[in-house]
Structure formats: structure tokens, C-alpha cells
Nucleic acid binder design. Structure first.
Length: 282
DNA sequence: AAGAAGTCCTGGGCGC
DNA sequence: TGCGCCCAGGACTTCT
């Protein structure tokens, strides 16, 4: 479940380990992970290209290459993008493997294949399959309480669902939505339009705080996520509601147990004490 | 037209 | 021991 902190961690590793190196050879094992890009086109574009920079938009990586073309990567749920040593042994479900100029290897692996790769020219990034519906990044200065409040106003959707909508805020997934709602003391059953300005300010602060803290811990590893160096993150130790069904709430003095409900076929974890139902709801 | 539901995909966990 | 069922969920497509 690479969400913003996990993707940012991978980006930082790519910045350190990949930028400035040239791709000498590449092979694509599973062409169905490509979007709007042919396997031959991918290989021809990668081979001989130096990597210029590694950027991030929401949960997506933008790896800029020479000749004004970027490799866009969405890791889906189980995607891994790792820069390894020359003797890196490709595990099962490795779909792209590229040899680097000084002997290293760039490998893309994705067990469930929900992720994808795409090539797009610099001047067409906004129209690409990968980025066309990606809104303001959750850690961008443009993501302000005012903007969030504006985006929420009038919406009848559940808060949970809205926060997962990448066109509204880019970068949150199920884990950090649960954690941010907990920190802000907002019920997962709340509806967007019912949030007060103060609610939105707390939510905005909670989102930034949990994402920033997780980046510092190199992200959350529940099952498949690894950093660009191929190692697990550490924030799973600090989750306060996600995956903690039945455990006592970590808030001092709160004796409630964390509950799990299903909203649009997704698990939501929350504390019924700290995140009381909105007024008018049983 | 917004919002909800369905779909893809595979490995791990569990029950019998 | 092993088979089969169910679950996890990001983001698109389809339905209401």
C-alpha cells in the first residue's frame, strides 16, 4: 500500500541511487503493466538514457530522463522499485529489469500487478494516464485548510471516501486516511459538508503531521512495501488505529477499543470514543 | 453528474 | 497435508 510517505521514501532513494546513472539495457517481462506505452518503445527509450531527476506527484513517481521524456510509475498496492547491486537477483513477479551504467540494476516488481508504468513527454505529463486525475499533493503548499474546506463544502460523500479521492487530495490511501481522521477526532461516518471550519483545520494539520512523521520513519510496511533500497519501513510500529481492531485506544485515559467497519468495501479503523458519531447519528 | 459499487490480481491465512 | 474460500485495496470503469 504505497501511499505518499512510502512513495516519497522510494523517491528519495532513487534521487540518491539512480539519478545521474545511465540505463544500459532493459527488458520488460510483463508488457501488461504498461499504459499507453509499447514494450519496444519503453526499451528503446530507456536504453542509453541518463536519469535526470526523481519527483513525486501524490502516489506517483515521475522519473525524468534525457530527451524530455519521463517514466511515470504508480506502485499500486504491491509495487516495488528498487535500485540494487549488479548481483541483484530478480525475484518472482519482476516485470522490468534494467542494467545501469556502473553495474547496478533497477528492478520493478509487483505481485498483484495493480501498479503500472508509462512514458510521457515532459510537456504532456498532465494529460498522461498516470497523472491526469491527480490533484493537489497533500504535502504541497497549495494544500491549505482553506482549499480543503472549499473542496469539502457541498459534498454529500462520506469523509472517508472523499479523502481517498486523488483528484481532491493526492497521496492519501486507506492507512493514512484512517490515521488522520483519528488524530483529528473525526468520525469516519461524517459527511464532508457537515465539517466545520475548525474540523477541517484539525484534519488538515493531522494529514500533514501523519504524513511527515511517516516519511521520517521511511513509511509503513504491512506486507509488500520496501524502500528504494529494498528494506521495510518503520511507521507500522506507530499506527494508532489501522490494523488495531480490538486493541485498546492509545489515547491517554480512553478505554475504548478500536473498531473496524467496512465502507465501500474497504476497512475503516477508528476509535468510537475519540471519533464520536456526528450529531444526529446513532 | 455525483457517488456508490464492481473489477482487476495474487499470496497468505484460515477452516475443514 | 492440502484444498478451497475469502480477504487485502489503488484506481479505473460501470451503474444508479
Amino acid at each position: 500500500m504505497p501511499e505518499l510517505p512510502e512513495v516519497e521514501t522510494v523517491r528519495r532513494d532513487l534521487q540518491r541511487r539512480l539519478v545521474g546513472r545511465t540505463i544500459r539495457a532493459a527488458s520488460i517481462v510483463q508488457p501488461d503493466i504498461l499504459r499507453r506505452t509499447g514494450p519496444v518503445q519503453l526499451v528503446n527509450t530507456l536504453v542509453g538514457s541518463e536519469v535526470v531527476s526523481a519527483e513525486r506527484r501524490g502516489k506517483n513517481l515521475v522519473i525524468r530522463l534525457e530527451r524530455e521524456v519521463a517514466l511515470l510509475v504508480n506502485l499500486g498496492m504491491t509495487g516495488q522499485l528498487v535500485v540494487g547491486a549488479a548481483d541483484h537477483r530478480a525475484e518472482a513477479h519482476t516485470h522490468l529489469i534494467a542494467a545501469l551504467s556502473d553495474g547496478g540494476v533497477l528492478a520493478y516488481r509487483d505481485v498483484r500487478r495493480f501498479g503500472h508504468l508509462e512514458l510521457a513527454p515532459f510537456d504532456r505529463l498532465e494529460e498522461s494516464f498516470t497523472l491526469r486525475n491527480v490533484g493537489v499533493d497533500a504535502l504541497s503548499p497549495e494544500h491549505t485548510p482553506e482549499r480543503l474546506h472549499e473542496a469539502m463544502s457541498g459534498r454529500t460523500a462520506l469523509l472517508k471516501g472523499a479523502l481517498l479521492d486523488q483528484s481532491m487530495i493526492a497521496g492519501l490511501g486507506n492507512i493514512y486516511v484512517c490515521e488522520a481522521m483519528f488524530r483529528a477526532g473525526l468520525s469516519p461516518r461524517a459527511r464532508c459538508r457537515d465539517l466545520s471550519r475548525e474540523d477541517v483545520v484539525r484534519l488538515h494539520d493531522a494529514i500533514r503531521a501523519v504524513l511527515t512523521e511517516s516519511i521520517a520513519a521511511e513509511g509503513t510496511t504491512i506486507s509488500d512495501y520496501v524502500t528504494g533500497a529494498g528494506v521495510p519501513g518503520g511507521f507500522q510500529e506507530r499506527l494508532r488505529v489501522y490494523g488495531r481492531e480490538g486493541q485498546v485506544c492509545t489515547t491517554a485515559g480512553c478505554e475504548h477499543r478500536i473498531e473496524r467497519i467496512v465502507q465501500s468495501n474497504r476497512s475503516t479503523f477508528y476509535c468510537p470514543g475519540c471519533q464520536a458519531n456526528p450529531p444526529g447519528m446513532e
